[in-house]
Amino acid sequence: MKKETIRIDSLSTGYRLKREVRVVARNINASIHSGELTCLLGANGAGKSTLLRTLAAFQPPIDGSIRIMGRNINEFSDKELSKAIGVVLTEKVDIRNMSVEDLVGLGRSPYTGFWGILDDTDRQVVRDALAMVKIEMLKDRMTDTLSDGERQKVMIAKVLAQQTPIIFLDEPTAFLDYPSKVEIMQLLHSLSRNENKTVFLSTHDLELALQIADKIWLMDKEKGVVIGTPEDLSYDGSLSSFFNRRGIVFDVGNGLFRIDNECSRSVCLTGNRKLFPLVRKALQRNGISTLTESTGCTDIEVNVSESDTGLEFTVKRDGKPDMNVSGINGLLESVQ
């Protein structure tokens, strides 16, 4: 049940200084839908944070309009806004002597009364939020003893306790190790699906975003904002032109990026085809491109096979005896 929750019309973001207006991004037209995970990609300085801050009403737009669920964002009061949009920011929250449960409980502030006391409903919402992020066991831990990944989950639980239809996250996967990055992204993706939330986040983790996002926003200083599904953007060449730099190749076939070293030599692979990708990766890193029999062979042929002890290679060169080596390391030494 996807619905347009955010509508952006000819939006320009930036800062009003004393004498001048510094525009960061201009004329953005887009909409963001509920039940979808949208990832905002762009180089440092492209204006991702400014856009997020503008969408979260932390700063006013320079021009254009933002409509949240059909209403202009300017018409929202502080209170209404706090029940519509929840944020997870890059700044690190570690308050000494505050338990995870209490911190998540602060997410209920828009709903609590003058003293900020949680009633039974509020406490249930907090428990549910902790359960959704699967951190029930952390509830009595102090926030200053959490790891970065745990803390990020706690902040996501806080935003869930806030019960907003829209969630903005500024680089939620920064500073995390790779498994934690994947875990957080999967969590956000399932939240958008299961809870029908509108999830919009900025990130530098390209491959992760391309694999998990429903929509990608590519943001660039000159080209503006390009929006689409990861597959559409990779098919129409937006992604490759976007990240068109020396040494980075966007593989349209699998929709992933590859670091490309310039190759001066080539070898021909024969034998067990299943093992080719692994060998190819190692050779490419060392500036050797690979061919197969179907594309024609050069003077060096490498036969790849598998044994109980690991990878086995037979290196055949014209006019030299065959050489048997084992392991990638052995192969690299023999062909160089």
Partner: peptide, 21 residues
Amino acid sequence: LVKTLNLLLLGDAYARNLGLN
């Protein structure tokens, strides 16, 4: 001022997002 101060613990941006002026 207790609720205000508790929210300020989170930092200005988070506090603001939770409806605090």
